[in-house]
């Protein structure tokens, strides 16, 4: 009931996700967050890769780009550098973000690009019918691990924090209002913000319909620490799955660094060497 209604951000397309999918809650949360901040649709761009989660830009009434598998972050980075005034949101799945696009995830985090990265983590490749993903629990049987996964799962927030993300949070797709509150904080953060969202796949992990009941606990509004290692410990607590904001720290963004670089280049242009000079410096030429 804010002055802007969340439904104004919804497109006319009806999602084709399976009934029960956690991604519906993420879509709901995202539009609630946009409405809460009264963001203008023309100031928003949602970039995705490939997968069930990556259909999301089609369901929102603002700019968007459905990129290729694992490459949502480079596209988003280019857009943000070219149009720094836009809110650039990247929606990915766990395969897209942490496996196929894992390298881009690391480098976007260490550069502290001002992007809001929302990963719909269902712990499986759903669109391609149930192969194990980087977050599939150890020993879980999938179509590509019929005897149980032998790969220890990756801890998304530990990776994000280790790589240099300045905002790390975890939400739950079936709790859209609390998730929306987290996304509001992520959108307001200047720097690389990661919201890892547990977004159950009820078709290829049907046990997840009930797996999280009584196991999720929400932390307070503000992170208790600016210590990355303590935040990692909280995010991987064995007591249950913690949800909420674990870490937030202000730091110069990549856009700040690029601006500085451009100013430096204007004031002190790099010396341009002539072709003769370059050829003369090649091995064997100067002898």
């Amino acid at each position: 009931m804010s002055t802007v209604e969340s439904k104004t951000y919804r497109s006319d397309l009806k999602p084709v996700w399976c009934p029960g999918c956690g991604d519906f809650g993420v879509l709901n949360a995202l539009t609630l967050a946009f409405a809460d901040l009264a963001l203008k649709p023309e100031h928003l761009s949602v970039i995705s890769g490939i997968g069930c989660s990556s259909r999301l830009p089609a369901y929102i009434r603002n700019y968007g780009f459905h990129a290729i598998h694992g490459r949502a972050l480079p596209v988003a980075a280019g857009l943000k550098l070219a149009r720094p005034e836009l809110h650039v949101i990247v929606t990915m799945g766990d395969g897209d973000a942490y496996s196929i696009g894992g390298n881009h995830f690391l480098h976007a985090a260490r550069r502290n690009l001002d992007l809001t990265c929302i990963v719909m983590d269902n712990r499986i490749y759903g669109m391609t019918k149930g192969q194990l993903s980087p977050t599939t629990p150890l020993k879980d049987r999938t179509h590509t691990s019929p005897y149980g996964s032998i790969d220890p799962p990756l801890h998304p927030l530990v990776v994000a924090l280790g790589a240099g993300a300045t905002f790390a949070a975890r939400g739950f797709g079936w709790e859209p209002r609390r998730l929306a509150a987290l996304i509001v904080q992520a959108l307001a953060h200047r720097g690389f913000s990661v919201v890892d969202v547990i977004s159950p796949c009820v078709v290829f992990r049907p046990e997840d319909r009930t797996a999280f009941k009584g196991k999720l606990t929400w932390t307070n509004e503000a992170p208790e620490t600016e210590d990355r290692f303590k935040a990692m410990a909280r995010a991987t607590s064995e007591k249950g799955l913690s949800l909420g904001l674990f870490f937030q720290k202000e730091a110069p963004t990549y856009e700040d660094a690029i601006k500085g670089e451009m100013e430096a280049a204007k004031q002190h242009p790099a010396p341009v060497r002539g072709l003769d000079e370059i050829v003369a410096a090649l091995p064997g030429r100067g002898e």
């Binding site: 804010s2 809460d36 079936w174 209002r177 929306a180």
Partner: peptide, 23 residues
């Protein structure tokens, strides 16, 4: 004017949960 914001309510109260449906 309306004084309560949409996110003043953090719990879903009367909306059935997303996980209750099946195709």
């Amino acid at each position: 004017p309306i004084s309560v914001k949409a996110l003043d309510l953090l719990e879903s109260v009367e909306a059935p949960p997303y996980e209750c449906v099946h195709y």
